[in-house]
Computed example of a mutant assay.
Amino acid sequence: MDSSGDPADLITAPRPCGWVRSGERWDLWWNGRCVATIVPHASAGVRLWLETSTTVQAKVVAAANARQARRYAERWCAVRLCPQLRLRAAVARLLQPAPDAGGPPKPALTRVQRQQARRLAQAGAGEMGRIKQALALRTSTQARPRPMF
Rank of each mutant, 00 (worst) to 15 (best):
D2K: 03
D2H: 04
D2A: 05
G5N: 13
P7E: 03
P7D: 03
A8F: 10
A13I: 05
A13P: 03
G18M: 04
V20K: 08
S22L: 04
E24V: 00
E24W: 00
R25N: 02
L28D: 02
L28S: 03
L28I: 04
W29F: 13
W30A: 15
N31C: 11
G32C: 10
G32W: 09
G32M: 09
R33D: 12
C34H: 03
A36E: 01
A36H: 01
T37N: 04
V39S: 12
H41S: 11
A42E: 02
A42L: 06
S43C: 07
G45F: 00
V46C: 02
L48A: 01
L50C: 14
E51T: 10
E51C: 15
S53V: 09
T55W: 06
V56C: 07
Q57W: 10
A58H: 11
A58P: 12
V60R: 00
V60H: 00
V60W: 00
V60S: 00
A62I: 00
A62G: 05
A63E: 14
A64P: 01
N65W: 01
R67F: 05
R70K: 15
A73Q: 06
A73F: 04
R75A: 07
W76T: 01
A78T: 02
V79I: 05
P83C: 03
L85Y: 12
L85I: 04
R86F: 06
R86E: 12
L87I: 13
R88V: 11
A89V: 04
A89N: 09
A90C: 04
V91I: 15
A92R: 14
A92D: 13
A92C: 07
R93N: 14
R93G: 09
L94I: 01
L95G: 08
Q96P: 01
A98F: 03
D100I: 03
G103M: 10
P104V: 08
P104A: 13
P105Q: 07
A108I: 01
L109D: 11
R111Y: 13
R111N: 11
V112I: 14
V112M: 13
V112Y: 12
Q116P: 02
A117S: 10
A117G: 08
L120E: 15
A121G: 06
Q122M: 12
G124V: 01
E127S: 08
M128K: 15
M128S: 14
I131W: 10
I131A: 15
Q133N: 06
Q133H: 10
A134H: 04
L135W: 09
R138A: 13
T139I: 05
T139K: 08
S140T: 07
T141M: 14
T141A: 13
Q142V: 05
R144G: 04
R144N: 05
R144I: 10
R144H: 07
P147G: 06
P147Q: 11
M148A: 10
